[in-house]
Amino acid sequence: MAKPAERRSALAEVYSPGTYGAATPDGPGVTLAERRGLTLVHLAGEAATLNEGVRKATGHDLPITPNTVIGDDRGGALWLAPDRWLIVSAREESERLERRLAAGIGSAGAATDVSSGRTVVRIGGANARDLLAKGCPLDLHPRAFAAGHCAQSLIAQVNVLLHAVDESRVDLYVARGFGLTMWEWLTDAAAEFGCRINAPEG
């Protein structure tokens, strides 16, 4: 079989590391970094029948509590909806994980590789949540959106999935086709806090 074409970031044309926006005494309040090469598999089915196969394939369980994450940003499962999850892995190649998940769950559910369909941006810094709050109706206070939580919502009218990795870092997942729009919104909205764009991760 031919090797699949190398994945190209939706932000490749505009991605330019450096420091932008306001000069603040404590340094940039926001840091942005695209997370490239992540493996994302969408999973549909009932937790009770899928969980064992998922644990066999990934080593972790499926979260049952809405809007929570089991595992972490390197390998975990994000709750999307009743009977729907996003499996994230920074360690394993997408085709391999999809195959192993599909084998693990059999005909009880569906595992679909969506890795090339999302742009993922890691937002950090003291003002990370202030930045998101400018365009997102969620309650982003760490009391309401604590580490290990995820939520789907809107930012600037665009559907997004947010994952609170810890108190100061949030991973933002957006459909690839909206990646550039979201990147332009983020970099523009972050200017008031001072913004450092780091080299892409992964």
């Binding site: 809405p66 109706p137 919502s153 809107l154």
Partner: peptide, 11 residues
């Protein structure tokens, strides 16, 4: 019923 209180724009 699953996500708790959310803003009307999400619905």
């Amino acid at each position: 019923p699953w996500c708790g209180e959310r803003a009307q724009v999400e619905f």
